[in-house]
Design a protein around this nucleic acid. Structure first.
Length: 566
RNA sequence: CGGGGCGUAGCGCAGUCCGGUAGCGCACUUCGUUCGGGACGAAGGGGCCGCAGGUUCGAAUCCUGUCGCCCCGACCA
């Protein structure tokens, strides 16, 4: 491809609305163009990269025996109502009506659609296992699209769904996807951190996220220094230790605390650490109030709480509910006395001594509160988030935090959808069984952004060789007619050797061509200039190195061939 | 949804406080000189100053409304 005929729309300066590195570079290198908030066009070069990532995905999925298909992006509301998600998906689902008033959603994910398609096809255990996938656009009305293509309203996802006759089969399907994902991301030149994850509103149990470490990551991971435990914050477990555990219980006292409402206020008022307080927060779960009691220095982990109640939605109770439950205004809640709600205690609570908590009476707190003595510790669970410095529950090592971009996610869904949507097949004995399901997603364009985020320098992108938009960036320096025809000759020889070549034939100065080459980031650069006309030698330079090799055309082609062969 | 900021040429910005009919850099066109890391000179083209209404002799500028975009936050009692 000749640059003079190509859209090489590079920018010298960062567009004002691009903040994160990958977004800036993708805009500057002319890969994408913003159409509106959270909506991007792919320019030719960006599309080439996207397609390369897609074909890696296809190859690795197919290698594991998955089958590609393609589903409508408009999905029937009835399917969502059947699974119950029409109500639980919330406002992030785009909903539309046709002229007849029929309701649809612009598919945010396709468990229902795929299961609906599959259930009409399978009828026997002989039809399983089955793994079907598609690469298609998904729509989510994101609360706040940002970071370019990393979080957009419209994005491309590879979503696969497996159906197995039993748990052993599901385990196998899951493992095969775990394998495929490792291959896919490594071929994309990405270093991913697989972490244990919460399965969120998708339902189901086991799940693993593939994260790319990045400062702009929207997820917080907790990794162990001592072992290979790694999980995202929504899920991460940690071992409880409590410094006050060996204190002697003192007599409980009621203390007047006018307008002392927040943990910060309490800290100032009592002059002791946040750890000493029992924070009592009221939620509405499955339409019932639940009080969650945690140490003052911890945050309630709503994902863990929701999982505990097998709830899809959890919401903070409003002031009226809090007053009804505790009998006091917000700010003075506690587990001592009468509470009109079920109470859940974090695992730390039973270990605490002489704690301070709300008295369930306006402007009063209780000090020297002791679990077991002053209130019954009925239901204990892990309902707080791990933090940096916490103790690993596996090996006792220290946990540390890292931010990450989620590029892939694999789940075991179990029978959530197959049961809910009445899918069944006959087993060997002619008995109806419900297949078990797994689902496996990859954010394709987010993966491209992650690749850029991880592979660049101050001059621009450095594409890993399997996803580079072109294989060779050829630059000719010289404008004389006979020089240009020599360049044309070299260009066509490179092309006929089978390389995908971007030939910068513009009449610009060399500086512009070199700068654009660095920005665009094709791994191999070949230059024909003064040296070529003197000695017939081309210059070959790899984007990730400073060295320049002087080679004849044949040598250069051999070297490039070897580079891409591996 | 709450808070903050911004909409002026393809891109980056100034001009807005203090009203007088739009400017700079890059990019683009033509000519000449240059020609290995974002060259130089000369001459050009390109704007409903986000949109609508109002005030005024006169509005990019003041007022009202509206739309779009960016950043931060989104409840921990």
């Amino acid at each position: 491809m000749k640059v003079s005929r190509y859209i090489l729309s590079t920018l010298k300066e960062d567009p004002s609305d691009a903040v994160v590195l990958s977004h800036r570079l993708m805009m500057r290198a002319g890969l994408i163009k913003k159409e509106a908030a959270g909506m991007y066009s792919y320019l030719p070069m960006g599309l080439k990269v996207l397609k390369k990532v897609m074909s890696i995905v296809r190859e690795e999925m197919d290698r594991e025996g998955a089958m590609e298909c393609l589903m409508p992006e408009l999905t029937n509301a009835d399917l969502w109502k059947e699974s119950g998600r029409w109500n639980t998906m919330g406002p992030e689902m785009f909903r539309i009506k046709d002229r007849n008033g029929m309701e649809y959603s612009l598919g945010p994910t396709h468990e229902e659609s795929m299961t609906n398609m599959v259930r009409s096809i399978i009828s026997s255990y002989r039809d399983l296992p089955l793994n079907v996938y598609q690469i298609n656009t998904k729509f989510r009305d994101e609360i706040r699209p940002r970071f370019g293509v990393i979080r957009s309203k419209e994005f491309i996802m590879k979503d696969a769904y497996s159906y197995d006759i039993n748990q052993a089969g599901l385990d196998e399907s899951y493992q095969s996807m775990a394998r495929a994902y490792r291959n896919i991301f490594s071929r994309c030149g990405l270093e991913t951190i697989p972490v244990q994850a919460d399965s969120g509103t998708m339902g189901g149990n086991a799940s693993e996220e593939f994260m790319v470490a990045s400062e702009v990551g929207e997820e917080v991971l907790l990794l162990c220094e001592g072992c290979d435990y790694r999980a995202n914050r929504e899920k991460a477990a940690y071992k409880r230790t409590e410094s006050s555990a060996d204190e002697t219980p003192l007599e409980m006292k009621k203390v007047s605390t006018p307008d002392v409402k927040t943990i910060e206020d309490l800290e100032a008022f009592f002059g002791c650490s946040q750890k000493r307080f029992l924070k009592s927060i009221v939620y509405i779960i499955n339409e019932k109030p639940v009080m969650v009691v945690v140490p003052g220095d911890r945050e309630v982990n709503e994902h863990k709480v929701a999982a505990l109640f097998a709830a899809t939605e959890i919401e903070l109770a409003n002031d009226e509910v809090v007053e009804k439950v505790t009998g006091a205004m917000v700010g003075f809640a506690g587990p001592v006395g009468t509470v009109g709600a079920e109470i859940v205690f974090d695992e730390t609570v039973p270990m605490m001594k002489n704690a301070i908590t709300g008295a369930n009476e306006a402007h009063y707190h209780l000090k020297n509160v002791n679990p077991g003595r002053d209130f019954e510790v009925s239901k204990v669970a892990d309902v707080t988030s791990a933090m940096e410095g916490d103790t690993c529950s596996v090996c006792g090592g220290k946990l540390y935090e890292k931010k990450g971009i989620e590029v892939g996610h694999i789940f075991k869904l179990g029978d959530k959808y197959t049961k809910g949507m009445n899918v069944s097949v006959l087993d060997e004995n002619g008995k109806a069984v419900t297949p078990l399901m797994g689902c496996y997603g990859i954010g394709v364009n987010r993966t491209v952004a992650a690749i850029v985020e991880q592979n660049n320098d101050e001059r621009g992108v450095i594409w890993p060789k399997e996803v580079t938009p072109f294989q060779v960036h050829f630059i000719g320096i010289g404008k004389k007619e006979e020089q240009v025809s020599e360049f044309e000759e070299i260009y066509s020889r490179l092309m006929s050797a089978g390389f995908d070549v971007l030939y910068d034939d513009r009449k610009s100065s060399p500086g512009i061509k070199f700068a654009d080459a660095d920005l665009v980031g094709i791994p191999v650069r070949v230059t024909a200039g003064k040296g070529y006309f003197e000695s017939g030698r081309l210059e070959l330079k790899y984007r990730n190195s400073q060295d320049i090799k002087e080679l004849s055309i044949d040598e250069a082609m051999e070297e490039i061939g070897n580079f891409y062969k591996k």
